[in-house]
């Protein structure tokens, strides 16, 4: 197993993680040997289609996999050099929302409809800090200011349904920041928002990352968002990492045919006429993954070798990792 070398400034290190779901139809290897590091102060984007396992990866880090049916069966997750998998439930609760926070895809439904925004933020403040209700409310006001909500005094007294989607996502971010986390996991934070709001939220996250000196794991299927935000990129396919590298390498010189395909299917202004490129085929059913490379069926370079044997993940350079036969000695043979 080749992984990127653990550096001292690594915040989270995921090592050969396997999260399986035990369903009536059989065992589903949703995450199948995923490794990556998140460094201090960087934004790491996890990219992939629906069903590639990116959300389950983030839930595994939070230890919020619904058990049963899900279970982390192998590997380790180190957070600030301590294994999260060995933590008790109580210790995990101390970490969630405090050291690792998460924001979700659906701002419309991720806030409790019966509480005022102010109450919800101060609740999450009081959960991790010794603060009176009054202090927490004052801090909630600060947070609302920080995330750029206009008229924060008024917003404190409003219910979630009185806010717009973008505003609610800002509130979610404010709640996530309540514990001053070292790591913020954002699971498709802008998917449910319209484009102009999307941009504002991304900009906000960028600013906050710098201000609060945190790392961000950004889960998305939108390469435009990746280009805007990420320092490094992990590309996932069929529960595995197929490529990992810094943003420039991924966009300028993608190695894996899947990454290549993803980039080609991005709409750009230059390609005004003609059809948008799409990768043929669909993601294989995780119940019946092929023996060989999981992308082989859809890959234009695939050879017999690809269908017979699973390629191993390998380092091309210190920062670049790929899982493809093309970059091995056996390709030309």
């Amino acid at each position: 197993m080749v992984t990127t070398s653990v550096k001292t400034d690594t915040v989270v290190s995921v090592k050969d993680l396997k999260t399986y779901f035990y369903t009536e139809d059989g065992v589903v290897p949703v995450i199948d040997g995923v490794s990556f590091d998140v460094r201090k102060g960087e934004t790491l984007a996890i990219v992939g289609e629906s069903g590639s396992g990116k959300s389950v990866t983030s839930l595994s880090i939070m230890r919020l996999i619904p058990t049963p049916p899900g279970k982390i069966v192998n590997g380790d997750i180190l957070f600030q050099n301590e294994s999260l998998l060995e933590k008790s439930d109580k210790e995990m609760r101390q970490i969630r929302g405090n050291k690792i926070s998460m924001i979700f895809q659906e701002p419309m439904t991720s806030l409790n409809p019966v509480y005022k925004v102010g109450d919800q933020i101060s609740e999450s403040i009081m959960l991790h800090q010794k603060a009176s209700k009054k202090e927490a409310t004052a801090e909630a006001l600060n947070l609302l200011n920080l995330v750029g909500i206009p008229e924060p005094e008024r917003r404190l007294n409003q219910y979630p349904h009185e806010l717009s989607g973008g505003m609610r996502q800002r509130v979610m971010i404010a709640m996530a920041l309540a514990g001053r986390p070292d790591l913020l996991i954002a699971d498709e934070p802008t998917t449910a928002l319209d484009v102009t709001i999307q941009n504002q939220i991304l900009q906000l996250m960028k600013d906050l990352k710098a201000k609060r000196d945190m790392s961000i794991v950004l889960i998305t299927h939108d390469l435009g968002v990746v280009a805007e935000m990420a320092d490094r990129v992990v590309v996932m396919y069929g529960g595995q990492v197929v490529e990992q590298g810094d943003i420039f390498t991924i966009f300028e010189a993608p190695k894996h045919p899947y990454t290549e395909g993803l980039l080609r299917s991005m709409p750009t202004a230059a390609k005004k006429n003609g059809k948008l490129y799409a990768i043929e085929g669909t993601v294989p059913n995780p119940l019946h993954f092929p023996v060989g490379c999981r992308f082989a069926e859809r890959c234009e370079y695939a050879k017999d070798l690809c269908r017979q044997e699973m390629p191993q993940i390998q380092n091309l350079s210190e920062d670049e990792v790929v899982r493809c036969w093309k970059y091995t000695d056996r390709w030309e043979a």
């Binding site: 939070m62 919020l64 995990m92 609760r93 101390q94 970490i95 969630r96 929302g97 405090n98 926070s101 998460m102 979700f104 659906e106 439904t109 991720s110 806030l111 409790n112 409809p113 999450s124 959960l127 991790h128 979610m172 709640m175 996530a176 309540a178 514990g179």
Partner: peptide, 14 residues
């Protein structure tokens, strides 16, 4: 099963 319950778990609530 609603989203805000998962969000609450993610903030570390009991």
């Amino acid at each position: 099963r609603r989203d805000f319950i998962e969000a609450a778990r993610a903030t570390g609530e009991k």
